[in-house]
């Protein structure tokens, strides 16, 4: 087998050419809070617990949540947005943040306030839910309450969950074209129930043309868009407005 030495006329390595480097910035002048944030940035869900427990002896839980855990997570989001971090680093950081938040919530005796609620599901007949798992993790990491309905969820169950939890938006994931046909049914029933919330649909074979073919539908190209879309929905943007911004 002969091998070429120079591949420059065969392919171009855009990943090498466009490589981005960067480091986490300091998020707090307070040494204790900065140390906690560092555990979040490094995604260390084992090491963070004793540090948070120790800090709770001298600081309020809400300060630790806002100025260390969430501040650290915001720094992780920045690094991911800039292309420095991979998704797994974001997930690990989210895991670490959640360990810290759970400890602080135990101390407070109540759950921290979340920005708003989002219902997520994978379509009936479809078991390919890793996209939804990522959406859940990213929404959670960004401060949203996630009502995770899981995979293979019947239309009626999605609608019932929306009636119960009154989310700012609902998401649907489908890999197969033969299962995404549940989406317009959900949209129709939500609209009939007076819940005209943005219905973000994405995954696999789900395409913009299909999703924008029914009311409420907003096509989600990437799971990574979920937090920003939730931000729009929380700010009160309608599904029409969000479709105009994210699609077309």
């Amino acid at each position: 087998m002969r091998y070429l030495d120079d591949f420059s006329n065969i392919f171009k390595r855009y990943d090498l050419d466009g490589e981005v480097t960067g480091e986490a910035r300091e998020v707090s002048k307070d040494a204790t809070l900065q140390e906690i944030a560092k555990f979040v940035v490094e995604g260390d869900d084992e090491g963070i617990l004793p540090v948070v427990q120790k800090a709770l002896g001298s600081k309020s839980p809400i300060d630790i949540i806002n100025d260390a855990l969430i501040a650290g997570m915001n720094e992780v989001s920045r690094l991911w947005d800039e292309g420095v971090y991979f998704l797994p680093q974001v997930i690990l950081s989210s895991d670490a943040m959640n360990v810290g938040i759970a400890e602080c919530e135990a101390k407070m005796g109540k759950s921290m306030d979340r920005k708003s609620t989002v219902v997520t599901h994978t379509a009936e007949g479809d078991i390919h839910d890793i996209g939804q798992v990522i959406v859940n993790a990213l929404l959670n990491a960004n401060g949203y309450e996630v009502v995770d309905l899981g995979a293979d969820v019947p239309v009626e169950k999605v609608v019932a969950a929306c009636k119960e939890h009154k989310p700012v938006m609902v998401t649907g994931t489908a890999l197969m074209t033969t299962t995404m046909t549940a989406f317009p049914k959900i949209a129709h029933q939500l609209e009939a129930a007076g819940l005209a919330i943005p219905f973000i649909c994405g995954g696999g074979a789900v395409c913009e043309e299909y999703v924008t073919g029914y009311d409420l539908g907003v096509w989600g190209k990437e799971a990574s868009q979920a937090p920003e879309m939730a931000e729009d929905a929380t700010a009160g943007e309608s599904w029409e407005s969000m479709r105009g911004k994210w699609n077309g």
């Binding site: 390595r13 991979f86 998704l87």
Partner: peptide, 19 residues
């Protein structure tokens, strides 16, 4: 294949290609 598709193309940052 899930790993391969998540690793994606040259500009994706979801999963390292080596993994």
């Amino acid at each position: 294949n899930t790993a391969m598709f998540m690793a994606g193309g040259m500009i994706s940052k979801d999963v390292p290609h080596v993994i």
